[in-house]
Write a protein that binds this DNA or RNA. Structure first.
Lengths: 347, 347
DNA sequence: CTGTTAGCGCCTTCAA
DNA sequence: TTGAAGGCGCTAACAG
């Protein structure tokens, strides 16, 4: 049992310090206002000397609370890069909570189920789930209804409250940036099912700007379902740039796709932004390390996470009475070197 | 208490199924050979219908085991990218364990201590720690000695058993690759304290190759302590490339640094590899997405993690009797486009 | 100021 | 084939 590891318990400390067990418990939990300073010091000192670590498992058991939030993310996700994870954990820690993390691949239904069950078994008090775009919103609705513990979804369009960014404006501004540079033949590599709400938002912003400017639109310039797999982005980029007349600017749904796009374009011997301008969406740390550096739209991930977490904690602590107002955040256009005047616009 | 969340317990299931509590426990833990099939089916069905999730906290308490391994990594780490994490978790899962993750920044002593204490309090049965290069090996030795639970370190040079790669050979081969391309003025941006074992290993491989080839060496071409912060790498790269005669090749300690280096070089208006060749070390997924793609040395991270984990699990399960043989893995040179003939070598 | 008591949910003997 | 009893380490309510 326990593979032979012996740990110091409260009882050991109590015996050693010559006091009762609850006394030690109280003192170590800083409920020591009622104890004599001498006792407090002796207890603390003894505990330290004996290498006592409180047993959070037993503590959770008796309190009926673990103080743990479960986070289910994706293996490869801009949202769950190390910095974001550490931020999340840090925010939680400040609020007196701990984080349990599980990562699965998008589309791996079995893993999603396993991990959620596991987190629930571990008695997490709330669940933050990055919604799998390949699953129906109904699935998560059912999950929420069936579960006794509060769940907030990230990246799912049909949730209330929702924390998201003003994509239509952002995409409109981004598109306008290209139009201002003289671009007319602009391809938007959507790469997601535009029947979903957020992709739709972005596309609508793009279309709005293009129409207002009277710029031409071709249906095949708006492909859905590219997904962000490397080969697909590569193939799509190649195909699009072989058209005549060639588009002068490409907008990608996210920075990851734009990175692949940039690589593809440069490997075709074209120059960025001289021959083709490109833009991403997200503003990953990496996007400043490409050459040319990537023009993009910054998503305020830390703020989005903070707000989502706040919603979850509210719901845990206040139950159904928690406020559920949505928050729509601004996204900022970050102009770097991957966009420039359209060919022919330079004199 | 429990913020009002009610969960189904074994007792509830027992009552509902009309059997005793231990019966349910036995059946659900697959110790059901002794029970009638009818009972088993009824119990399982009832549990499923009632949405029973076993309480791992209570289970851990009574068994004196949590089945959890604590992993302490770095916020930004090639090792703890999402894929690696998921791999680790997957390997653990297969072996019947779960993972708890904590991430801290290198040099943040307080956080390291907090997280280790926290993981211990959570009753993890073993600890995998990415050793902080800024801390002394003695520190971790003391930690291991003081702790009752098994600890394995990753990236710490003075541990037994160690899982590492044959850096001298790898660096020698990498250097030879450049020498074969006609390079003589090669700068190795060590970026770490070469009094440490592994950096020393790499430097020794580099020096060996250079000396064997009779290539010139200047002391200031081997700076320690650059660290991999962007500004430092940038400044160093600029400084080195302003020298006369200019070096024709730069080797970076890792791919992250090489990425910054590449960005810096290109932004100086130099061409890679026409004017300067560069190499990294690690082979991150990203290194195939730069342009030109990065020549580098591949570290077999998944295998390294697997072996390290194996050591830890062995030690947990077999105690001191666990085998402690070290494993030195091969690292492979991956030639891509960022290295080419030295200027002047082309005719 | 300090100690006693009860029990959290579960698993594991042991007895029926 | 099933049920009863005990206890893991800790906290909370209450008694001294």
């Amino acid at each position: 049992m326990n593979y032979g590891v012996r740990v110091v318990t409260l009882r050991d400390v109590a015996r050693e310090a010559g006091v009762s067990l609850p006394t030690v418990s109280h003192v170590l939990n800083c409920r020591d206002t009622r104890y004599s300073p001498a006792t407090c010091v002796r207890v603390r000192e003894t505990a330290r000397r004996m290498g006592y670590h409180r047993n959070e498992v037993a503590r959770a058991m008796v309190r009926g609370r673990t103080g743990i939030i479960g986070v289910l993310g994706f293996v490869s996700s801009k949202i769950y890069g190390g910095e974001q994870l550490a931020n999340l954990a840090g925010t939680l820690k400040q609020a007196g909570w701990r984080m349990h993390l599980a990562l699965r691949d998008a589309g791996d239904i079995q893993a999603e189920e396993d991990y959620i069950n596991d987190l629930v078994s571990q008695q997490v008090e709330g669940l933050m789930i990055s919604a799998d775009p390949l699953r129906s919103p109904a699935h998560y609705h059912a999950l929420r209804r069936a579960s006794d513990i509060p769940i907030v979804l990230m990246g799912s369009p049909y949730e209330r409250p929702e924390v998201w960014i003003d994509s239509p404006s952002a995409m409109r501004a981004a598109t306008q940036h290209l139009l201002d540079l003289g671009h007319r033949r602009i391809v938007y590599a959507v790469g997601e099912d535009i029947s979903r709400k957020y992709p739709l938002h972005r596309v609508s912003g793009f279309l709005r700007a293009m129409q207002d400017a009277g710029a031409p639109l071709q249906q095949d310039w708006l492909p859905g379902e590219i997904c962000d797999f490397r080969e697909h982005v590569q193939a799509f980029t190649r195909k699009v740039l072989r058209a005549t007349p060639r588009p002068t600017a490409l907008m990608y749904t996210n920075d990851e796709m734009a990175l692949v796009g940039l690589h593809t374009i440069l490997s075709m011997g074209l120059r960025v932004p001289r021959d083709v301008s490109i833009m991403g969406f997200d503003d990953l740390p990496l996007s400043q390390l490409t050459w040319p550096e990537l023009t993009t739209v910054r998503q305020p991930f830390p703020e989005m996470h903070r707000l989502t977490l706040q919603f979850l904690l509210d719901r845990i602590e206040k139950g159904k009475r928690a406020r559920t107002a949505s928050r729509i955040l601004k996204a900022e256009l970050i102009v770097r070197q991957s966009t420039g005047p359209a060919p022919g616009e330079r004199k």
